[in-house]
Design a protein around this nucleic acid. Structure first.
Lengths: 149, 149
DNA sequence: GGGCATAGTGATAATGATTACCATTATTAG
DNA sequence: CTAATAATGGTAATCATTATCACTATGCCC
């Protein structure tokens, strides 16, 4: 639950720290961070903007995009792009990796991880002489709630 | 190697046949089909347009988009959207499903399938009461060729 | 072979998400 | 407090894709 919205004033040691090069504290960035961490996850930029305006009415959409990008660079948020091509954001960095089950009926996102799948993916990559850095698994279908109807 | 570019004149029995409702033969659609099946795969719409123009100089980008959509509806092509959000196309329908290893250095796409992963994905979905219809697995990293350099 | 209904096409305007630009505002080291 | 400059808001620009519309091509009918 650490918020990094202020700059490390000294030279950066790691790429990640460099990506996080914020020079000044900013109320808007803080609010956008709070929105991402306020429960309803998987918001797109427009939805984040809508929520953020409840707290800071004047905040602009450009600032939302900038802040989201910045937070992703910091490892404080992560972005993923489902089949409709519109980016969605969730709190936490790639360390909190998980896959998505996406209901094509109600649009709900279910998060899931299967260590066995992760391991097999590593092996699959290795068989092709491929060094994986990240991956994306999305399963589209009908969730339990929608199937019951 | 069957080309469906002419309409089934009678009422359609299946959803798939309906999606394939082409009323007339069209040279452009045929050419676009040929481009998709001509070796270099994973082209985006613009690249397909570029190739198609070599064979039919006057062909427009709108027609390319229309034909690609149509071929996908027929099961003669399939679309997937990598992390940059720009759709790419390959011949064949979802029956020829496979996953992608995408090199972030040279942009190459390697196709792969691992039945074990597929099975585990089914189980993962089932554990969440989820009825999967399709899925997408993309592994980003460095391919063997680029790692060697 | 010619006519006709209409599917297909090309040019381009429209769209929607995202980014770039720029004048203004806010932050903070000194 | 002040200067230097990062952050912001509004909006124009961008880019892939879709919609529109006038025109062309296809193929069933005679």
């Amino acid at each position: 639950m650490v918020i990094i919205i202020t700059m490390p004033r000294k030279p950066f040691k790691t790429l990640e720290a460099r990506a996080c090069q914020a020079a000044r504290h900013s109320k808007r960035r803080e609010v956008i961070f709070e929105v991402l961490n306020s429960g309803h996850s998987h918001l797109n930029a427009e939805e984040v903007h809508h929520e953020a305006r409840k707290r800071l009415p004047g905040i602009g959409i450009a600032t939302v995009y900038r802040a989201l990008k910045f937070l992703c660079g910091c490892g404080q948020a992560s972005e993923f792009i489902p089949a409709d091509g519109v980016a969605r954001y969730e709190p936490g960095g790639s360390r909190a990796h998980h896959d998505h089950l996406i209901c094509t009926s109600c649009g709900r996102f279910i998060e899931a991880v299967d260590p066995a799948i992760e391991r097999l993916q590593e092996k699959l990559a290795a068989r092709h002489g491929f060094k994986p850095t990240r991956h994306k698994l999305e399963i589209y279908g009908i969730c339990a709630g929608c199937a019951g109807k």
